[in-house]
Design a protein around this nucleic acid. Structure first.
Lengths: 333, 333
DNA sequence: TTGTAGGCGTTATCAA
DNA sequence: TTGATAACGCCTACAA
């Protein structure tokens, strides 16, 4: 029903070959070019992307797979990735897997099989069967934020360990000794790394780690809220608190406000992720700022490189540094 | 390089026809089925979706196009839409256009041309050239949240006018007379509708509308924050405030907190969008709750209907009612 | 139930 | 520079 390249050929009196050339940027005689353009316009012709894909095995689109649409860290990076990729003539499609391992594999296969020339993927970090078969497909994939145990793959992430190390170190330097931490699930890659940093700095400064002060949440608002309340009930109170992601930070601050605990007089707090909402908390929060722009941009250039069939330095593992943004929520004592 | 249906045929000694039948759910002799499955497994064969698409003109995937990934209202609906569509065997791909009209058209065309059997689309509401040509493609499209002037298309949205009407009415019933409103851009469809409700209820209750009390924001956090400050500076103060979307509501509440204005003692406030973060504000906010679940589900069933080539009642325009959820932020005076 | 063969709309090769 | 033609991998009559 829709017009094909054949129709354009007939309409112009030229051959499909010539039309195809024009379509692909190969110059044709100006006179013919005009005729072709006119015909395309009149017929409202559009390339059939299936046929083209069948022939070229290429879509000029990149799939982006993230855990969840409500993951602001992820969507912020996605936004950057989209911008960049667009500059290079790639379209993007986004899929999310709702933090669900099964869906994660399905979506990944979907992107690999169906649509994408390459993929930018923020995995759960747990083990996957599907993921191996996907790597065999030879489609370039760049992981962001988390790596997957035992899988060789390009990955761009942040130095989680030192991120929390320096945050805690900052509090220690300000005289704090009992510092609580609200981190993510025990089986989460980023969460484990951040906790390691917490422990290591305690070790380095000769402060014993009190297990009570370590709370495992689920990176969601409500758990930050709850676990902060829990920490505030300790007989021997904490004077500092590190919260290991954005949403839990919001939840923790909300809890402190409700308990009328003054920041930073009663407690010093460092949050994670320098995102919009956090900037509006009073007093201004000292936070670990994640280099989202860099992560997105590096991931894209890495992917582009693989797309050019340049597999030098494979796998490339980039560990981007965070920055501690000092504002008003940490007090000397 | 990757195995084709031909390879599977050779490997099994059967014909491509038989393999294809099996692939498409047409029963073959059990003995052969086993052989085929084994071969597929051994060869790691996967259907080439380009070839299939070329033949069938179908991808079993639906495109979802939304203004921005940071639009929580949109992403919440997307999440619901994804669930539903998955149940019906459709995959989904998401695109966003960063609130940019040019990108909006490009992405729409991308989805129409390349990938999607149908589209769920939350438009800006401004006029588009691209959109007409897209409707000509005969691919089913269901608009959500906003309609487009002068374009006939299925659409599922909320009754914005009565939403704000009832919110303001609720404040009037509680004795308020000077009620401010922070709404969206003047050229936004939803924003205009919500403002109409504001004006109409004033009219119906014989309260003159004071232009000063109407503030046009941009549906973003910061503008809620700013405009609320501005409203609080009025010589003749307001006692009630309606904020016409989720982010601006957060911003407004933040501003009130900073100004030490007590809710609801000093000011009554009604927010828009009953989303997670809002639930954690103290005191609990009275809000206009938008039926996001319903919108998503209705949009999907409408799309599915069109996909079945049932174009009865075209265009269908659904205007879903909101609900005023009374909590603790409106006070009698 | 299975096999054969034509065609889906492009691109790419090669000859003119 | 242009044109003819053979793939690309799959689906689907139709015939066996």
């Amino acid at each position: 029903m829709p017009p094909t390249i054949n129709d354009v050929a007939k309409h112009t009196g030229l051959s499909v070959g010539t039309i195809s050339k024009h379509l692909n940027g190969i110059p044709v005689k100006p006179r013919n070019r005009l005729r072709i353009e006119k015909a395309i316009d009149e017929l409202n012709y559009k390339v059939n992307e299936f046929a083209r894909g069948l022939k070229t095995n290429t879509t000029k689109t990149i799939g982006i797979l993230i855990p969840n649409l409500d993951n602001v860290f992820a969507t912020t990076i996605v936004s950057i990735v989209e911008d960049r990729l667009l500059q290079y003539g790639y379209s993007t499609i986004i899929c999310d897997y709702k933090d669900d391992g099964k869906l994660e594999n399905e979506k990944l296969n979907f992107l690999v099989d169906k649509m994408a020339d390459g993929i930018i993927f923020m995995p759960t970090g747990n083990c996957h069967d599907g993921i191996r078969s996907m790597l065999e497909s030879r489609k370039p994939i760049v992981l962001i934020d988390r790596m997957i145990e035992g899988i060789e793959c390009d990955v761009v992430m942040i130095d989680n360990l030192n991120a929390s190390y320096h945050a805690i170190e900052h509090m220690i330097a300000n005289g704090h000794k009992r510092i609580g931490v609200i981190t993510g699930q025990k089986n989460s890659f980023t969460s484990r790394e951040r906790l390691k940093g917490y422990c290591r700095v305690h070790e380095d400064y000769g402060i014993p780690v009190d297990e009570q002060l370590i709370q495992f949440g689920d990176y969601k608002f409500e758990s930050g809220h709850q676990l902060c309340q829990k920490l505030m009930k300790l007989e021997s109170p904490i004077t500092g608190l590190l919260v290991a992601n954005y949403k839990m930070t919001m939840g923790a601050v909300m809890a402190l406000n409700e308990l009328n605990v003054n920041i930073p007089r009663d407690i010093s707090i460092i949050g994670f992720g320098d995102l919009d909402m956090i900037r509006l908390i009073k007093p201004a929060l000292t936070v670990v700022s994640q280099p989202m722009k860099e992560i997105g941009e590096i991931a894209v250039s890495l992917l582009l490189k693989r797309l050019r069939d340049d597999f030098s330095n494979y796998p490339t593992i980039v560990r981007q540094k965070t920055k501690l943004v000092e504002r008003d929520s940490v007090m000397k004592r």
